[in-house]
Simulated scan of single mutants.
Amino acid sequence: MKFDTAYSLSLDDKLSIYDVRELNFDETAAYDSEQDSFLCPNDACRGAFDTGNALGTFNAKNVNYVRTPHFKNKTSTRHIEGCRYASTHKAAAGENDDEREDNFPSEWVLTRRQYPRKPAPAGTEGSLPQAHTKVPSPQATPSHGASDHTPDKTSVFAHPVECYVSNIDDKDTLKRMPLKIGDHTATYWAFFKKIEYLQDNKGLIYWGKIKAIKDYTSSFRIDFEKKVWHDKKPYSVNVYLSKKLIDNYRKRTAFLEQIKAAASSERSLYCFFYGVTPELKQVPSKKNPEQTFGVFSANIENLDHLIIREAPRVE
């Protein structure tokens, strides 16, 4: 049984697994999902049981994740009669690993979601309450899943990317599902643009297979395999990640671990990014600084809006 969201006991709010992963890697947030308890997102169902009736998670803390992790029922998890989150069969181990993401958010919010902590009752510091029979508090953010229905918004870039990648062989769905980013609304199919066609339109989510990642110790350059044709000539494409950008990133440790592993990996990896459009620039030649050559390049401005991952379905 796949859960779109689950109720976090420590945050008194409903989280997607993408939210959980954000919190696990955020060095500015004192959060560890292993110390939290996740309960059924159905308010009526959750209120019928105590806090020991929790869900499980898997793959939620793996930095170099390949698939989207999920919440799941434990063998001991109980649900009220008629709850749509009750398992109708006993899933085999790892069965949910390869499920495509069918929870399509209709809006990707560019402002990062805030996760206010629930005040701990007096005398229970460092521990979770032992009983819970109420519905989520009114201050829970409704746009991020304050009901047990599929949330229609997300602030985590990995969510729309997973929707696109895992459904790449279902173009009809991608051309039908709407997505809003800022003031622009289009379909998933229209918003995701292969890097070699970046001149077609600005303000899209560009993506492509990585040719190489140049590790400059404190900064990185991602070179794409495909080239852009401009004035009947092929030009290389790259994006640059500055030292300042990385040093100020709230998920710096996890990001450095991932990109360094990607730089030395022999696997086929892909880069998805949003917020900048590579432009044609003249770069000095290393062999002869007086000469220049053209390249489509851009400086990434927000690491929350860049993902490096495997994407076997797009081949």
Rank of each mutant, 00 (worst) to 15 (best):
P116M: 02
E81A: 05
R112Y: 02
A92W: 08
A92S: 15
G126A: 12
K61N: 13
A91I: 11
R67I: 00
T124R: 12
R78N: 15
W108E: 02
T133W: 01
G56I: 11
G82P: 03
K90L: 08
R113W: 04
P136E: 07
A131M: 06
A91F: 15
S76C: 10
W108N: 01
E125I: 03
Q114C: 12
S87I: 02
P129A: 11
T88G: 08
R100I: 03
A120E: 14
Y85S: 00
S76I: 09
Y115W: 10
N103Q: 07
Y65T: 07
D98Q: 08
A86W: 00
R113G: 00
N59H: 12
N62K: 11
Q139W: 07
N96W: 07
N62R: 14
H89R: 14
H70M: 08
F71S: 01
S137L: 13
E101I: 07
F58D: 03
A92Q: 15
Y85P: 00
S127W: 09
I80Y: 04
H132I: 08
A60M: 07
Y115K: 00
T133G: 15
L110M: 07
I80A: 08
K72F: 04
V63I: 15
N64R: 11
V66E: 14
F58T: 08
E81W: 04
F58Y: 13
H79M: 01
N59Q: 12
N73F: 05
H79V: 00
P119C: 03
E99K: 14
D98T: 07
T88S: 13
Q130N: 10
L110F: 00
P116F: 06
Q139H: 13
K118M: 12
A93L: 09
P119I: 05
P116E: 06
Y85W: 04
A120R: 14
Y65R: 12
F58N: 08
E95V: 02
K134L: 14
A93S: 11
H70P: 01
H70V: 04
R112A: 06
D102S: 05
N103D: 11
V66K: 13
F71R: 01
E125A: 12
E107R: 05
Q114F: 13
S137A: 14
Y85M: 00
G56M: 09
S76H: 15
R67D: 01
G56W: 02
T75C: 08
R100D: 03
A60T: 02
K118D: 09
N59F: 12
R78W: 01
P119V: 05
K90R: 12
A120P: 01
